[in-house]
Design a protein around this nucleic acid. Structure first.
Length: 823
RNA sequence: GCCGGGAUGGUGGAACUGGUAGACACAAGGGACUUAAAAUCCCUCGGAGAGUAAUCUCUGUGCGGGUUCGACUCCCGCUCCCGGCACCA
């Protein structure tokens, strides 16, 4: 009675063996001559249970880590927990238990699930970001940033989410709504902490060019988000006042066509005008109520009101009215724009609506309609040649941009300027379950940072959130503190950090998780940057932008140099697709989830791994299929039976040609699978090749010793190549085949080039590029020989009958194409 | 509107640098084994047509052109789908 494939037993057995042997630990012995390789997957938020998205993410990373180990790399493959965050607080409210308890319970649960999957993590480096040993460095770093002026507290118009009871960074507002709960955000003026990411906008943008191992898509999204535009800042005078009205424009060439100015509702000029104009005050009130969400709806409606103020054109000295317009954003540029209705569609629409003059200053350069364009009808927005522009007439748009900017600069009325869409990163949150911001408010000294020797500022973990204001605000022992400056009673900051702070530097902490500094430069030199990062594309802008920024901040704080840690945290990025069921993302609310546990229980971890890796290429969405899981399991069972049959020794003579053919299959498979690993991560294709090879091994009938030897050769190669995908299964297979090394630490199989050499090859024969048959010729047959062989084939010959051969093309090893025409 | 990505059988997906389209798998259908079922194994499987048959022919990678001996692949022009961004001055 043959022994059945029992995944549960096999998996438990090998996990114990690996663990005891410590094969998953990264090695820091100086004697280790292997090259280092850092493979990382986005660490999970401990939400309670692993879902299929996690399984896919971590299996992908595990395959890469295991493959690299087999290729002789010293691999760092760590895991931990992104443990601060809102769900813990919500759960705390619901269960009336502190968030820490819920968090640690989940971590324990999920750690067990990860281990069940047989993921090759270096567990000695595990940490959770809610541990003071971790977040103290964030506080330390923040203090450095405050010292350097890179972090600051400022009152600004910010995004407020009522249900989450906190402010949000711009990156966390998706289509005007909270990224987490989808509620439209409100605009509020609040004093908040910011980090000056705009100071790094240029480097963050330029370094994107060096990220050759990142998907174009992500690079494009970041470039878009940073939103660099070049133009000029221009100062207009304000009639009857010493004030100036600064504006930013990308089209200084159209300056002479300005017929009005437009300022945001929140602009000081607008506010001042409203003081004596109740109607205008009402309009401003109305504008301020428009949330970003509603702004989408109101997109069509461009409305405004004249403030009564007049601006003085910096070149012509002309007087133009200053309007308030609902489409001007206080938060971009200077909150004011110059309006050139003749050459901007939006300005045109506005001018048309309110009867403001439209003055053409750019004429089309186009040969077909030289100068023909009625700007009263529609704006002409392309580049052209200047008209009605005094001394600038006749210049091209490009020339005029330079000339006008230069002229303004000479007069002190403007200068060239680069503007970014990116805003500073708002990092304070009115939440309890996060890292405390190490600031103290003293009536006498103002804002004082907590001295380094008093760090970490511990988060009291016993508090009970209620859903309203953070319990920290009512926790006296936390709030009351002596001012480190003057010693008088002062108040602690009760806001905590955005949890994206923790995930912005964890990849560097993994290189030296127990360091008594933030990170150890030597460890950074050995491991950083991450060679391969794997995660979901949903973090393309948020996490991946912050992490890039934070890495540069750490570098510039002197924690490591460019040489030691690199200028970028992630060298290569793999963004995996979602796991879908019935065409939709798996979610509890849709009720279309598949529980990884149930799959592991029924089929074992190896089947779960194999299915998720085989069903789709990594970067595409994966449609869940129960039948597909069955199929993956079926494959393992087939190989299992094959292994058992290979122990039977028949006494006969094998056919030499069949043996040669099988060895060709084995070694070309090694070649194909290796190629799949080295060029992109086409794991689905690699697995398909392994299935093909197994099919060939199954179909082969060994008749004697030689035959059995080749089957064993194939099975050993199969065990080694399966090891990254289905490590438990591969180890068991290898052990039963009597392999010297355990499969997961075996050397990656080498191609026997001699096995690839064929004496005879099959050439496809085409007539006029259409396949008409095939011939078998010697491997190095020349064109002449091949042509003779083709003519000798009846099926091909009939197509040559009555034809004159014009040209013959031989693609060695592939095909012979004969070009003919009727005689 | 702008920026990315994509479209290949009933389905997921293969196809090196322009060289035999549909690998591998799922589903479906047929058959074997079985009292029966499960499991397993074998066969068929893009479409149309011809032939008793082995086979053969035509056609086919979203649409229309082009380059080439040869195009899923390259070029030009479209259609549709997905993702991101958007009163950004």
């Amino acid at each position: 009675m043959p022994e059945l494939y029992e995944p549960q037993e096999i998996e438990k057995k090998w996990q114990t063996i690996w663990n005891e042997a410590g094969i998953d630990l990264a090695c820091e012995e100086p004697s280790d001559s292997r090259k280092s390789y850092y493979c990382l997957e986005m660490f999970p938020y401990p939400s309670g249970n692993l879902h299929m998205g996690h399984v896919r993410n971590y299996c992908l990373g595990d395959v890469i880590a295991r493959y690299k180990r087999m290729r002789g790399f010293n691999v760092l493959h760590p895991i931990g927990w992104d443990a601060f965050g809102l769900p813990a607080e919500n759960a705390a409210i619901k269960h009336k238990r502190p968030p820490a308890e819920w968090t640690w319970h989940n971590i324990n649960q999920m750690r067990g699930q990860l281990k069940q999957l047989g993921l090759s993590y270096d567990w000695s480096r595990e940490f959770a970001t809610c541990q003071p040993e971790y977040y103290r460095w964030e506080q330390w770093m923040f203090t450095r940033l405050v010292e350097k002026g890179l972090a600051y507290r400022k009152e600004a118009e910010v995004n407020w989410c009522q249900p989450c009871h906190t402010v949000l960074a711009n990156e966390q507002v998706v289509e005007g709504a909270c990224w987490r709960c989808d509620t439209p955000v409100e605009r509020k003026n609040l004093a908040q902490w910011f980090i000056r990411i705009t100071g790094y906008a240029e480097e963050l943008l330029n370094d994107l060019d060096g990220l050759k191992g990142w998907p174009e898509k992500v690079i494009g999204m970041q470039r878009n988000w940073i939103g660099r535009s070049t133009g000029a800042e221009v100062s207009f005078g304000v009639e009857g006042s010493d004030e100036v009205l600064d504006i930013f424009t990308t089209r200084p060439d159209t300056l002479m066509g300005v017929t009005y100015m437009a300022v945001a509702a929140g602009h000081p000029l607008a506010k001042r005008a409203a003081e004596s104009n109740p109607e205008l005050a009402g309009f401003l009130e109305e504008c301020s109520k428009i949330s970003t969400k509603e702004a989408d709806v109101a997109l069509m409606e461009k409305r405004g009101m004249d403030t009564g103020f007049k601006a003085i054109h910096p070149i012509s000295g002309e007087s133009v009215p200053i309007w308030v317009a609902n489409f001007v954003l206080m938060s971009y540029g200077t909150g004011a724009v110059m309006s050139v209705p003749a050459h901007d569609e939006r300005d045109h629409e506005f001018a048309h609506r309110y009867g403001i003059p439209i003055k053409q200053v750019i004429a089309p350069l186009d040969e077909n309609n030289q100068g023909e364009w009625d700007v009263q009808q529609a704006a002409f927005v392309d580049a052209g040649v200047l008209v009605n522009s005094a001394q600038f007439d006749g210049l091209t748009s490009d020339g005029a941009k330079a000339a006008i900017t230069e002229h303004l600069a000479r007069e002190g009325n403007g200068e060239e300027r680069v503007q970014y869409r990116l805003r500073d990163w708002l990092v304070s949150r009115q939440r309890y379950w996060g890292a405390p911001i190490p600031a103290i408010y003293c009536d006498d000294c103002g804002i004082v940072m907590v001295p380094d020797e008093q760090l970490p500022v511990l988060l009291p973990e016993h508090l009970q959130p209620t859903g309203g204001a953070s319990p920290l605000t009512e926790c006296d022992e936390f709030v009351h503190v002596d001012c480190p400056g003057c010693g008088k009673a002062a108040r602690r900051e009760t806001d905590t950090f955005d949890t994206f702070m923790e995930s912005s530097w964890y990849m560097n902490r993994y290189t030296s998780p127990h360091s008594s500094t933030m990170v150890d430069a030597a460890a950074m030199k050995q491991w950083a940057p991450v060679d391969q990062y794997v995660g979901g594309v949903e973090h393309a802008v948020l996490h991946l932008l912050y992490a890039r920024f934070y890495h540069k901040l750490m570098r510039d704080t002197g924690l490591f140099t460019s040489e030691e840690g690199g200028d970028e945290p992630f060298k290569n990025l793999l963004t995996q697709g979602m796991v879908l069921k019935d065409g939709a993302k798996m979610s509890k609310s849709k009720g279309n989830t598949v529980d990884p546990n149930s799959i592991i229980e029924k089929y074992g971890a190896d089947t779960a791994r194999l299915f998720t890796l085989f069903a789709a290429p990594p970067e595409k969405d994966l449609e869940w299929s129960d039948a597909g899981v069955e199929g993956a399991n079926r494959f393992l069972k087939r190989v299992w039976r094959l292994m058992q049959s290979a122990s039977i020794n028949p006494a006969g003579e094998d056919d030499a040609a069949a043996i040669k053919a099988l060895r060709l299959t084995i070694h070309s498979t090694i070649q194909r699978v290796t190629h799949a690993f080295e060029h992109g991560f086409a794991f689905n294709v690699a697995i398909a090749a392994l299935m093909e090879m197994s099919n060939a091994l199954i179909a082969f009938e060994p008749k004697g010793e030689k035959g059995i030897a080749v089957v064993r050769e194939g099975l050993e190669a199969l065990a080694a190549m399966l090891a990254p995908f289905v490590p438990h299964f591969a180890c068991e297979l290898g052990e039963r085949m009597g392999m010297e090394k355990v499969a997961v630490v075996a050397d990656w199989p080498a191609v026997d080039e001699s096995a690839l050499i064929q004496d005879e090859i099959t050439l496809a024969v085409q007539i006029q590029g259409k396949r008409r048959g095939e011939i078998i010729v010697a491997k190095d047959a020349d064109q002449e020989t091949a042509l003779v062989a083709a003519k000798a084939d009846a099926g091909i010959a009939k197509w040559l009958d009555g034809m004159q051969i014009l040209k013959v093309i031989l693609v060695p090893g592939r095909l012979l194409n004969i070009v003919v025409r009727p005689e």
